[in-house]
Simulated scan of single mutants.
Amino acid sequence: MTFDTALTEGRLIKRYKRFLADVELDNGEIVTAHCANSGSMMGLKESGSTVYLSPNTNPKAKLDWRWEIASQDGNLVGINTSRPNAIVAQAIEDGAISELADFESLKREVKYGQNSRIDILLYGRDGRNTYVEVKNVTLRRPDQADPEAAEFPDAVTARGAKHLNELSDMVDQGHRAVMFYLVQRGDCTHFRLAEDIDPEYTSAFKRARNRGVEVLCYDCDVTPTEIRLRNPLSIIEP
């Protein structure tokens, strides 16, 4: 996924009210950017850290800027949760994900389950579809016992557990279901669940796996010009 316009570099002043961030641009101007991330963003909201913003071209938007990329220990991290679906969909269509290569057509945001929308639906040639739920992964905890792990979630997510249950229901109906963890950073060697942050999500994950839900995890190459799917990461299951 290539950004439509060049990103603007700045320094984070603070993130607040979850969806707002004050940033000082290189020219000294202080702006408020929309932060499209409802998680805790642990490790990515340090005052003074480098961030990248995109101009908001929507005439109805209340803010002129969107926060796209954060940094941690010199590594760039994509934090905009509206991006992962497009990144994964593009990679599937480009044939970059071998595990999701056999399909007839692809649609995004299709209604299913209990008042939900599946991120990506791959229609199969034999009538057996593949339901792909994409989760944005940004958490790495260098000060923990497994410092090179990408982890999810970074906050309690009842919605995430609900999605695991709904994917399981699709397996029961004879379809294929995949939980896809997109690590929007390139400095991790493997993936694991942050069970200490949300044990209920881990329990839901285990139940989903037992019911036949598949799990994939890929990392990304993140730059100020594009975010591109890179390599599969090994998954340490609970």
Rank of each mutant, 00 (worst) to 15 (best):
F3Q: 01
T5I: 10
A6N: 13
K14P: 06
K14S: 15
F19T: 14
L20C: 06
A21S: 09
D26W: 11
N27F: 07
N27K: 05
E29V: 08
I30Y: 11
I30D: 12
V31Q: 09
T32R: 12
H34C: 06
A36S: 10
A36Y: 12
S38G: 13
G39M: 14
M42T: 15
T50E: 07
P55H: 06
P55V: 11
T57I: 09
N58E: 10
K62R: 08
L63S: 00
R66C: 09
E68Y: 06
S71K: 11
Q72I: 03
D73K: 04
G74D: 09
N75L: 06
L76H: 03
G78P: 01
T81P: 01
S82F: 02
N85R: 13
N85I: 11
A86W: 03
I87D: 00
A91K: 09
G95R: 04
A96M: 14
E99A: 10
A101Q: 14
F103E: 13
E104G: 11
K107Y: 09
K107G: 07
E109W: 09
K111E: 15
N115R: 12
S116N: 10
R117G: 09
R117S: 14
I118Y: 06
D119R: 00
I120R: 05
I120D: 03
G124M: 13
R128T: 15
Y131P: 02
Y131F: 15
V134C: 02
V137K: 00
V137L: 02
L139W: 14
R140D: 02
R141S: 14
R141W: 11
P142R: 13
D143P: 02
A149I: 03
A155H: 14
A155P: 05
A158K: 13
R159V: 12
A161Q: 07
K162P: 04
E166R: 06
E166Y: 06
L167T: 07
L167F: 08
D169Y: 08
M170R: 14
V171A: 01
D172Y: 09
G174Q: 05
R176A: 07
V178T: 04
M179C: 12
F180C: 02
Y181D: 00
H190V: 01
H190L: 01
L193D: 00
D198N: 11
P199T: 10
Y201A: 08
K206Y: 04
R209M: 11
D219G: 04
P224S: 03
P224D: 03
P224Y: 02
T225S: 13
I227D: 00
R228K: 15
L229F: 11
R230Y: 09
I235W: 00
I235G: 00
I236V: 06
E237I: 01
